[in-house]
Nucleic acid binder design. Structure first.
Length: 561
RNA sequence: UGGGGCGUCGUCAAGCGGUAAGACACAGGAUUUUGGUUCCUGCAUUCGGAGGUUCGAAUCCUCCCGCCCCAGCCA
């Protein structure tokens, strides 16, 4: 397994923290937080932030809080909160008793706003949304000051109180920080810090009708939690001056510092929350945990392990460059982890009947098969062998090319963990010409042993005894999008992959998998890693999701997808 | 266009004035009862470009070029 995940990473954030520690800021304390808004499930991009924030806390023997940044009631819900709690835990991180909600700070934030008004640094503005936008100016032109900018402190206090009391309609007034309408940074042109919004909040119900804006709530929440390093993504860089402006005015000491890093992008996948919500709501996928989704719960259901995801986050690093990580790296991390831990099993996804003509009619032999070729400590299992078998339809070709290492007319192959068999004849469907059945003979002397004459066979294939086969349903998941960077496209939905889900209903797995434990991963030899679905289980017919295919050089040679 | 940020291999990413780590991907080869794993080998004379400073520059300076973010009462 990769040892990079355990080696201490170096990055610019750690440099900043080291420097702060050297200057003895915050009494040598390091406190971070992971602050998602509960308006959707967290995805692999959030996982990067989770690993970063909790990883930093661990490395510096500090703390990392989980904070739900729920300052806009629209779209937020307890279901999302619960999914976030579950997913961060599953990723392997613990915030102990430090679970916080921005909504728990509403009263304190309101008091902070009053303090700002009293300092003469915030005012109630009664411009309409359109007027506010017009007054804001543009990139090239400075904004114009609001006619309400110079209301007296008393009037502002009274108006703000009445805003809270519900005396005004939504949008009638807002509270604004009094900064500089001519600031080159548009964020600083008297930003709105409170708005009236009559929308029930999933936690505070209708107790509040005014809600603080992100810029006001976030930095103060950080301060209230005594966060030392507030790590967020690059698009908030423009907001940092405002973060500092607010904190400098309201927090006397131990002010938190905002540090930005580049958000994650992964090829062939979309991580925009807006897009993911759309995929779910318009039923392009079957919910947030559809195994094709890039969400943490989908990856769990698909069979990814938390270790694989953490290793991935360690491998990609943290920097400020815009990036597009090759999804192959994610898949590599998944294989790398699963290769170590997954027991092997045989299965046949697209069955083709094989009859061993010279094998006794009613005989059954149990082969002891290793659960892991490199790990004897993982033990063995019995795999029954009999006269009629299923092999993978792909593993027989009537007219094979030279590089094909499997069964064909005149060829001999090893049945994995069993005998060498030799092709004798085939039966075809008279109408379609499709091969229906292969007849072979076996060499009894090759039971788990090389042939005495030292001859080489064409290859090794997997198989299942027909009489002992357990029917299963197998789902092959492929990437959801067909283009490398769907995230950069306005309408990425037109690039949805129509073949992203293939359901195979006539599969067979080993009898050992009859009562497979939901959520457990196996390597189906020569096929890939599969996971028993944790949700969709059926009596006697297990359902497997393909986590990821094995690295397969033959598909490259043959040019198959 | 004003402001903010970023440009090192196909993709990420170290590097912080002393002569380009590592990972993925890719290409060869060895071992293999998984076309898996493992193991070797190869893969940036050059760091967006051009000048300059220096004995010495990816690292410092100047100019230029390219990409990303900001004009929600979203976060």
């Amino acid at each position: 397994m990769s040892d990079l995940a355990t080696s201490a990473p170096t990055d610019f954030i750690r440099d900043i923290i080291d420097e702060d520690l050297r200057m003895n800021k915050h009494e040598g304390r390091v406190a971070t937080r992971f602050p998602p808004e509960p308006n959707g499930y967290i995805h692999i991009g959030h996982a990067k932030s989770v690993c970063l924030n909790f990883g930093l806390a661990k490395q510096y023997k500090g703390t990392c809080n989980l904070r739900l940044d729920d300052t806009d009631p629209a779209g937020e819900s307890m279901e999302y909160v619960e999914s976030i709690i579950r997913d961060v835990h599953w990723l392997g991180f613990d915030w102990e008793d430090r679970l916080f909600y921005a909504s728990d700070y509403f009263e304190k934030l309101y008091q902070f706003a009053i303090e700002l008004i009293k300092k003469g640094e915030a005012y109630v503005c009664s411009l309409s949304p359109d007027e506010i936008r017009e007054h804001r100016g543009s990139f090239t032109e400075p904004g114009k000051e609001s006619p309400y900018r110079n209301r007296s402190v008393e009037e502002n206090l009274k108006l703000f109180e009445r805003m809270r009391a519900g005396e005004f309609a939504d949008g009638e007034h807002v509270l604004r920080a009094k900064i500089d309408m001519a600031a080159p940074n548009i964020v600083m042109r008297d930003p709105i810090i409170y708005r009236i919004k009559r929308e029930p909040h999933y936690r505070t119900g209708d107790r509040w009708i005014i809600y603080p804006m992100y810029d006001f709530a976030h930095c103060l929440s950080d301060a209230l939690e005594r966060i030392t390093h507030s790590i967020c993504t690059l698009e908030f860089e423009n907001n940092r001056p405002l973060y500092d402006w607010i904190v400098e005015r309201l927090i006397p000491a131990n002010r938190p510092k905002q540090i930005e890093f580049a958000r994650l992008s992964v090829s062939y996948t979309v991580l925009s929350k807006r897009r993911l919500i759309e995929l779910v709501q318009k039923n392009y996928v079957n919910g947030w945990d559809d195994p094709r989704m890039p969400t943490v719960s989908a990856m769990r259901r698909r069979g990814y392990t938390p270790e694989a995801i953490r290793n991935f986050c360690a491998e990609i690093g943290v920097a400020k460059n815009d990036n597009l990580i090759d999804v192959a790296l994610l898949e590599h991390c998944v294989r790398d982890d699963l290769n170590e831990r997954s027991p092997r099993a045989m299965s046949v996804l697209r069955p083709l009947r094989v009859v061993i003509d010279n094998y006794p009619e009613n005989q059954v032999e149990d082969f002891d098969s290793a659960n892991h070729p490199q790990k004897p400590e993982m033990g063995t299992r019995k795999v029954p062998f009999s006269r009629v078998l299923y092999i993978e339809r792909d593993d027989f070709m009537e007219d094979p090319p030279k590089k094909y290492n499997r069964l064909g007319p005149g060829r001999e192959v090893r049945l994995r963990n069993a005998y060498i068999i030799k092709y004798e004849s085939m039966l075809k469907d008279e109408k379609t010409g499709e091969v229906k059945e292969i007849h072979c003979t076996y060499d009894p002397a090759t039971r788990n042993a090389p042939p005495a004459d030292g001859r080489k066979v064409q290859g090794v294939i997997h198989w299942i005894s027909a009489a002992h086969a357990v029917p299963a349903e197998v789902r092959l998941y492929d990437r959801l999008f067909t283009i490398e960077d769907p995230g950069s496209v306005e309408d990425c939905l037109q690039y949805l992959n129509p073949n992203s889900l293939e359901i195979l209903t006539t599969c067979y797995v080993e009898q050992n998998l009859k009562n497979v434990k939901p959520g457990s991963q196996y390597q189906f030899e020569r096929l890939g890693y599969f996971c028993a679905d944790e949700k969709d289980t059926r009596e006697g017919k297990p359902v497997f999701n393909r986590i990821v295919a094995l690295r397969d050089t033959w598909t490259k040679i043959a040019g198959k997808g």
